[in-house]
Write a protein that binds this DNA or RNA. Structure first.
Lengths: 344, 344
DNA sequence: TTGTAGGCGTTATCAT
DNA sequence: ATGATAACGCCTACAA
């Protein structure tokens, strides 16, 4: 009648062995004699026994749990990365514990503290900008960690797995410049608080200034990622009477929204305007006519981060930092250069 | 020099009190005398003490952890729901533990087992289709749970929080029928394995058959969610020479991809074809010209599920089942009925 | 190959 | 308001 979950003791009693043997049957079955093992596992099965994680953790000083601090979950790019993480971790018997800062630009220290309380064996941090106290905490406790969507060397010596957003920005700039564009506009996330948006912007500018092309302040809009926002940004550019022949969109949602708005204003892509987007999402907009895209290895980031940590926890010293490749998928190479959109 | 994390003992020693007092200072500070409390908290601070979750869990038989089984993470709809979950849970001191079935249509039982091993206080399950053995496990252990993206009464008496996909399908059908449409096409996820896709489809058909409108087999395409897939589906419909004046897309990614492909084929929306999408993602495509959309409360699902469980864990008996409203956002009401697209 | 027993760091109960 | 102490359920030496 007692609905309490069965314990090791009870399994041991039923199988006629000691608790130690049951424990071994579950974690290192190869150490047991064939007969004992089957008998024990049968008892486990019969009782529907499930190991007690907290007790295991307390005794073994390991939780087989990995924590991840992810702001802006809901933006599907990070969700896809998490899926990569989870897939690999699960294969090694780890579970993923999620935490997020109160607000995307807030400190991750409280989130990390939560994770440490939970006893995570390792931590995944998104981005490169973090409170130094946070790293100190991790160091003191000797908890391995890795940054994702960030690059080592970017003002930090932490292990990191990601790609170069700045290089991606340059890639876009170089492509458009080569097509003959000189007047640009850009819609992006707030560069102040979003380091990835900032890098993409900086890379673009780097490329443009090298050939004397323009990206005047009036042609730069910062907004949240989303279809609606992309469309509204284009409306704003039109309202401001900004002239440009190339529009760079900080991610693919913005790009798709922008395309719709451009069509509404009667501008043809790529005849009147070239449009380029950075492809954060898992739903690649490659087939949208004329939209050129930078493609990122978003799921690979998660997978690599997971393998790195798993290796670390095995006591190995895997390669600490990985820069994954970015790729430009060109859809507007034919028409160069454009007439340029006219004000309304 | 020992990098071991400080324990309750050490804090107690430093503060000159017993471990019990330190424990209370952290969980129920109001029980302590003003002076003792500050003294203890100072010691906590000084040592950088962090509670040991496993030990806490072992002693208190509570982990303050909630598990969620989410297939297809990466599809941003679920990510947004998770964010809702997490936001509310965090406010009550809970942490979210993620698990997922090996493959979206596989049993969730192993995932739930993992979570139970971790000692989760409650479980969130996505969808209504689950192994009965799973519910049995939860019942035996008296672990509260709730289904999300599902409705109670849908062949189950489990607590559930979601919306009626079937009703959403009817909503779309009724709208299009009222506009005068009689020839339909639909692009959706595989209805065999995706219960939400199936419900949307069934609802649509329900509405159509009531007025004798068509949705012939040749006009139904099943594919994965994505821009590319939406575009390819339209190409396939064209290739098959299917005639329709209304196209229903199973989610918004498909819809956006389809719109692009329709444009490529020279069909104007909504002049030649009405297009409707179900809005799963957080990036609402409402501003895309002429795209009519069914909007779902995806984040609210997570929030409600979290509050429900938190209340349950507090020992209350909150309302078990919630049906959230869906909303049709019409963008094609003016033009009725259409000429209908011509084959290529 | 299997059993035994000493922790692991809290919480909760019971005194005081 | 505070202290002492017995669980909590398992893992892991170590012994047999």
């Amino acid at each position: 009648m007692t609905p309490r979950a069965p314990s090791l003791q009870e399994v041991a009693a039923l199988a006629g062995v000691s608790t130690g043997t049951v424990s071994r049957a579950l974690s290192r079955p190869e150490l047991l004699a064939e007969g004992t093992r089957t008998r024990v596992l049968a008892a486990v099965d019969r009782l529907g026994y499930v190991r007690h994680g907290a007790a295991r953790a307390l005794a073994s000083r390991r939780t087989r749990t990995i924590g991840a601090v992810i702001p802006r979950l809901g933006a599907s790019m990070f969700a896809t990365t998490i899926r990569g993480l989870q897939r690999v971790l699960e294969a090694d018997g780890y579970t993923l514990l999620l935490a997020h800062p109160a607000d995307p630009s807030a400190s991750s220290l409280p989130a990390v503290t939560t994770l440490l309380e939970r006893g995570v064996d390792a931590v995944v941090l998104l981005g490169r900008t973090h409170d130094p106290a946070l790293f100190e905490r991790l160091r003191v406790r000797e908890v391995p960690y890795v940054l994702i969507w960030a690059l080592a060397g970017e003002a930090s010596a932490h292990p990191a797995i990601g790609f170069d957003n700045r290089r991606a920005g340059r890639l876009v700039g170089d492509h458009l410049v080569a097509l003959g564009h000189r007047r640009f506009a850009m819609i992006s996330a707030p560069t102040q608080e979003n380091e990835r948006a900032r890098d993409r912007f900086l890379g673009l500018v780097e490329s443009l200034t090298s050939v004397g092309a323009h990206l005047p302040a009036a042609a730069r809009l910062e907004t949240q990622y989303g279809y609606r926002e992309g469309a509204e940004a284009v409306d704003a550019l039109v309202a401001r009477d900004v002239r440009f022949t190339a529009l760079v969109c900080g991610n693919d949602y913005l790009a798709v929204g922008a395309l719709a708005a451009l069509a509404r204003h009667g501008w043809r892509v790529p005849h009147d305007v070239s449009v380029v987007g950075f492809n954060d999402s898992e739903f690649a907009p490659y087939t949208i006519p004329a939209l050129t895209t930078v493609r990122f290895p978003i799921e690979a980031i998660g997978e690599r981060a997971a393998s790195y940590l798993v290796e670390r926890l095995r006591g190995n010293a895997p390669i600490a930092s990985v820069e994954l490749p970015v790729e430009l998928i060109v859809r507007d190479s034919t028409a160069t250069p454009r007439r340029g959109p006219l004000p309304r």
